[in-house]
Write a protein that binds this DNA or RNA. Structure first.
Lengths: 152, 152
DNA sequence: TATTGTTATACTCTATAACTATA
DNA sequence: TATAGTTATAGAGTATAACAATA
């Protein structure tokens, strides 16, 4: 029981370590034809996944970081015309961060390159295993978040 | 297909973000009754998992970091008497890093607290799903590492 | 005056580069 | 002079705290 969990945790840790290494990010962004740091890419892909403009605070919450961090990177992305500020439809006085056309393209390429990378890594996997991985990873994600909240 | 992978990647990213947050580490080490930073804990647990003294270079390779990083943290751990340097049995002139008795205890507590945390998070999971998660996570870890190597 | 975001600053983690020691 | 490790330094990523703006 416990032993199984230790193994799961170890394996998870190893995947994280592998993907965290400097060269992995470098290689992926190069393949996507962009020069952006990790947080930049995370924000862009987050906006693409959200599929609508989001406020700074919402982005920060989604990525589980503090807002000053988002502010800084959004400012940089705005300067490069990858995002822009638009009026919040629900609250006329507030702003949301939207992908520009170019930003959406770039985000799409980044996301696709990542998926493709996994696609090749899992090339030999039977469809059933892939489906199970998706199901279990989403379940894990939900339950880990829920558990964390319950501890507050 | 691709869509499934995007979902898997998103879910994975979210789990990582959740566990990476400052307070998570703080809470876990507090529960383990120690005051160590993340890299310290990683090195201790790595040594415990390895179940034998290891050289600096081997630890660095295992954790996928550069050796100066390991050198620094090992020096700190040594000062706190959680690890010690012992002669390498295979190579009399070299040293290996070994857990002291206290180091092994601390490492054990850290590892157990993590496992227990997951244990509660996954409390509702049927045994079959847990077993599948372990199997797929280990497979993922292997294949991701292998894929990375193949690209070099 | 409550909410949201921003500016300024500092800390943690990790890498690179240059050096040392040992055989 | 090759190998393993160390010292010194720099950079990325993120947090905290203090402040500003807006309603």
């Amino acid at each position: 029981m416990d032993e199984d969990l230790n193994r799961t945790v170890s394996a998870f840790r190893k995947v994280v370590a592998t993907l965290k290494r400097g060269k992995t990010h470098e290689r992926l962004t190069e393949a996507a034809g962009v020069r952006l740091d990790r947080p930049d890419v995370e924000i862009l892909v987050h906006l693409l996944d959200a599929d609508e403009p989001r406020r700074i605070g919402a982005i920060a919450e989604g990525l589980q970081v503090e807002s000053p961090h988002v502010t800084r990177h959004v400012a940089a992305l705005e300067q490069r015309a990858l995002v822009e500020r638009v009026r919040d439809p629900d609250d006329g006085r507030a702003w949301r961060i939207a992908l520009t056309e170019e930003g959406a393209e770039v985000a799409g390429r980044c996301r696709q390159v990542t998926s493709q990378w996994f696609e090749s890594a899992l090339a030999d996997w039977p469809a059933a295993d892939r489906a199970e991985l998706t199901r279990l990873m989403e379940k894990l994600s939900d339950d880990v978040s829920a558990h964390l909240k319950s501890l507050r």
